[in-house]
């Protein structure tokens, strides 16, 4: 009886969810084995720009991402979407991000941007600076589209930086501080793709240091994160 229930419920799932979500879920049929060398794992380093910092109320203005495989970032495989929002965002945030709702001429609907993003990330490991917020805001958006939360594993470069540090620990883990500390020249700050690119370089530098300490596999990297 239980096997019957299982297959029935998965059938139901497949029937009811939108096609893009079914395709996305299908990519998770196989887990990434823990002993996979880090060089073979596909990481997607991403960042979102939003109307504010409240996950429940604020909305996505843009998503930027780059793919990191084996210490390599292929510029051609980078990702950037601007989202058209119908309301007027709060003035204070426009000053920071310099994205006006209609200024980004290539903007699209939030739903289309999220669909593209899911297709882009697949089952890769998501990486971001304070990635929890970015994952939450994407999840919020997914929920309004009638689906569930992101299934990807994620890694926070802020936490990773703390893990790499030796005492005495500095008390600042903002992206700006870490860029200064690791000699990363800052450009295009507060632009989703620009921040994603900087975060990816930071990620590569942190990975390099961890690897020197003997962290070789996916499992070892994710341990305790």
């Amino acid at each position: 009886m239980s096997w019957f229930f299982k297959s029935w419920s998965s059938n139901k799932k497949n029937r009811e969810y939108p096609a893009f979500w079914r395709e996305y879920l299908a990519r998770f049929d196989q887990k990434i084995p823990k002993n996979t060398p880090i060089e073979e794992v596909r990481f997607v380093v991403f960042d979102t720009e939003t109307t504010g910092l409240n996950v429940k109320e604020d909305q996505i203005l843009s998503i930027g991402a780059v793919e990191v495989i084996g210490s390599n970032i292929a510029i051609q495989n980078s990702f950037e979407r601007f989202v058209h929002q119908s309301f007027t965002p709060i003035a204070s945030n426009i000053e920071i991000h310099e994205i006006l709702p209609d200024a980004a001429s290539e903007s699209q609907s939030e739903e289309a941007a999220i669909k593209d993003f899911l297709e882009y990330i697949g089952n890769s490991v998501l990486v971001g600076h304070h990635v929890g917020f970015d994952v939450a805001i994407v999840n919020q958006s997914l929920q309004s589209m009638g689906t569930f939360k992101l299934k990807n594993k994620s890694l926070d470069t802020g936490l990773l930086a703390k893990r790499v540090q030796v005492p005495p620990y500095p008390d600042k883990y903002a992206l700006d501080d870490l860029c200064d500390q690791y000699g990363i020249e800052q450009h295009d700050r507060h632009n989703a793709a620009g921040d994603a690119y900087l975060t990816a370089i930071l990620f590569l530098k942190l990975l390099g240091r961890l690897r020197k300490r003997g962290v070789q596999t996916y499992g070892e990297l994710m341990k305790g994160m």
Binding site: G64, A65, V66, I75, Q76, N77, S78, F79, E80, H187, D188, N191, A193, G194, Y197
Partner: peptide, 10 residues
Amino acid sequence: MSSTISNRIY
């Protein structure tokens, strides 16, 4: 491809 990033390289 992200135009922000490719502009950076450019």
